[in-house]
Design a protein around this nucleic acid. Structure first.
Length: 105
DNA sequence: GGCTTGACTTACA
DNA sequence: CTGTAAGCCAAGC
């Protein structure tokens, strides 16, 4: 078990199964931290060639945390669609259906 | 060591 | 649903 929160966060995100997503709060809680921003902060530190499926991490609203005009949004959107995630007219997904449970894995 | 910022969340009005 | 406020951890200056 890594002592660094960053590596712990990344390790958890890497455990997210394909076709599912986790919220920042979800990952933060599993990581044992009380600050969901650290999750996004850790992901922001990653590179494009990272092994971490950062695109499977979204906010509690079930939507991508990037502006729809941003490239990051398009990339994450495309990657999620590629895994079977469905977005609604508001660019949001059904958390009830796609949310990840660590025990469900 | 202190202040500011950040891919956030929850609560209240 | 929209707007405001507090909480929390790490990095950068």
């Amino acid at each position: 078990m890594e002592n660094n929160l960053f590596e712990r966060i990344l390790a958890i995100i890497k455990q997210i199964p394909k076709g599912k997503v986790a919220t920042y709060g979800q990952v933060a809680t599993i990581a044992g931290i009380q600050n969901p921003r650290l999750v996004g902060f850790a992901l922001a530190s990653q590179k494009e060639d990272t092994d971490v499926p950062w695109f499977r991490v979204i906010n509690s609203k079930g939507e991508i945390s990037f502006p729809a005009e941003s490239d990051g949004f398009k990339i994450q959107y495309s990657l999620l669609i590629n895994e079977g995630i469905i977005f609604d007219a508001k660019n949001r997904i059904n958390l009830k259906q796609f949310s990840w449970s660590e025990v469900d894995g």
